[in-house]
Design a protein around this nucleic acid. Structure first.
Lengths: 242, 242
DNA sequence: CTCGGCAAAATTTGATCATATTGTCGAGAT
DNA sequence: ATCTCGACAATATGATCAAATTTTGCCGAG
C-alpha cells in the first residue's frame, strides 16, 4: 500500500491523507479539526488563489459543516499566516510581497537545514526508501505535467524528513512558513516549465544513506533557496507587468 | 455603541488588556480578539502555571464573554503553541521539556538577532529613548522585586525592537516562541534571585545609538541565550528533584 | 466492622447548531 | 458626488447533545 505511514495515530498534522480521503472519518476527530485540515490543504496546494476572498458561509456549504467549526478552523489558519483577517473583518488568502519572500528565505534556510541535520541520524532505512519512492513519484509527476501530484509529493518529501527530526516546535514553525508560499506555488510552477529541482533531493537521499548530516543539510538549504528564488523572480515579473 | 462595554462594569483587576491594547481601544475590535489578547497576556506573563487546565466555560465566566469568542481565542493560542490540545479534547498550559528548550534556543538565537539587525537602522531616536526608559523601569522592577513588572518590561523591550524591524513573518514567529516559555518564566525567576543582568540591554541601546547593527545583534543573541540557559538549568533541577 | 475496588449515577466540560444582532458593501435615487 | 435602502456577511448568544471525569454507593474480602 502507499500509506506507508502506519505509526502516527493522530498527531496534529496529517493534512494530505485526510484530504484525499472522504470527508467521513472515525468519530474520534472533531469536526473543526477536519475542517482545518481540509482548508489547510486547499491553501497549501494552491486550490485557492492569492487574494481570493474566503467567507464563512461559503465554507459551511462547501465543506458541509456547521458555522462554529468553520470559524475555529479559519481562526487557526489566520494565526498560522495561511489566511488574512482584514479590517473589514473579512478573510482572504494573503498575497506575497517581495519583503515577505526575503523573510521566508531567511527563516526557511535557517530552520529546514537544521531539521534535516537532526533527521539524518534518526531516519530508518525504510523511511529513506519511502523518501526515494516519493521522489520517484515526483519525477513522474513532473514528466507527466501533473502539477497537483508534484506539489503534494514535494510537500510530503519535506514533511517526512522533518517529522523524523523529532523537533515539534521547529517542525510546526516550518509548517507555518510553507503555508505562506503555498498559494503562490501553483501559480509559479504554471509558468516555469523547466523545474530543475530534484538534484537536491537525490543528493539528500544519498547523504541520508551515508549518514552524512552536513551534506544533507546543505542540499536542503540549496533546495529551499532554489524554490524561493523561483518564486521571487516570478513575483518580480508580475510586479513589472502590472 | 453603548452596548459594547455594558458587561465590564467595574472589575477591580484587569491590568492585562490595558497593556496590550495600548493604542487601539476603539469599538471596532471584535470580542474574540479581546479575549485572545487577554488570554495571551495571561499565558505570557505567568498568570497560568504550566500544566494547568484551561476550560472553555471557566474562561467564559472569568472573562465574561460568550462561548464562541472564547473558543476561537483558545484555538488561536493552541495554534501558536501557547496552549495544548490533549487527546481528551481538553486544553491545558503546556509544560516545557528539555528538548523543547533546545529547540527554542536554536530558533530564538537565529531569529531574534536578525530582527535586531534589521531594526537597528530603522529605530528613531525617540524609539531608542523609549527603549531606554523601559530598561530603566525594568531595573526598578528588579530592584523592587516586582516580578510582574519585570516580565512585562522585558517583553516590551524585545517587542518594540522587533516591531521596528518591519518583518511581520519573523516577528510573529518570534512571538510564538515567547508564548512557549512564558509560563515558565515566572516560575524560574521566582527561585533565581540574581536575575540575568541587563548588561545586554544597555549594550544594545548603545549600539542602536551608534547604528552598529552587528553589535546589537550579538548583544541580543547573548541576552536570548542567557535567558534560555537560565530556564534550562532551573528545569534540570526540577527534573532532578522529582 | 472496616477497607478496597468496581460500577453506575451525577457533574463537569466540550462540540455543534440554529438564530438573533450588528455591521458592511453596493445599487440606485436625489 | 452623496445619501439612503436593501442584501449579504460576520459576530455573538444560548440551547442542546455527547463525551469524559468525578462522585457516590454497593458489595465482598479480610
Amino acid at each position: 500500500m502507499e500509506s506507508v505511514d502506519a505509526k502516527r495515530a493522530a498527531p496534529p498534522d496529517d493534512p494530505v491523507d485526510e484530504l484525499s480521503g472522504a470527508s467521513d472519518t472515525g468519530g474520534k476527530v472533531p469536526v473543526h479539526e477536519l475542517v482545518y485540515r481540509r482548508l489547510r490543504a486547499l491553501i497549501l496546494f494552491g486550490d485557492m488563489a492569492p487574494g481570493q476572498a474566503v467567507t464563512i458561509q461559503g465554507l459551511t456549504s462547501q465543506l458541509e459543516a456547521g458555522m462554529t467549526p468553520v470559524r475555529e478552523a479559519i481562526r487557526r489558519l489566520i494565526s498560522e499566516g495561511g489566511l488574512t483577517f482584514r479590517d473589514n473583518r473579512r478573510v482572504s488568502v494573503p498575497v506575497l510581497s517581495v519583503e515577505n519572500i526575503a523573510e521566508l528565505k531567511f527563516l526557511r534556510s535557517a530552520i529546514e537545514p537544521e531539521l534535516t541535520r537532526l533527521a539524518t541520524p534518526r531516519l530508518s532505512v525504510a523511511e529513506i526508501d519511502a523518501l526515494e519512492r516519493i521522489d520517484t513519484e515526483m519525477d513522474a509527476a513532473i514528466a507527466g505535467g501533473d502539477l497537483e501530484s508534484y506539489l503534494k509529493q514535494n510537500h510530503a518529501f519535506h514533511t517526512r524528513i522533518y517529522a523524523a527530526a523529532e523537533a515539534p516546535i521547529m517542525t510546526s514553525t516550518a509548517d507555518r512558513l510553507w503555508l505562506r508560499f503555498g498559494p503562490s506555488l501553483r501559480f509559479v510552477c504554471a509558468r516555469v516549465e523547466s523545474v530543475a529541482l530534484p538534484d537536491n533531493h537525490k543528493t539528500m537521499i544519498a547523504a541520508f544513506r551515508a549518514g552524512d548530516a552536513e551534506t544533507a543539510a546543505l542540499a536542503m538549504r540549496a533546495d529551499v533557496l532554489q524554490g524561493m528564488v523561483q518564486i521571487e523572480t516570478c513575483l518580480a515579473e508580475d510586479l513589472y507587468k502590472s
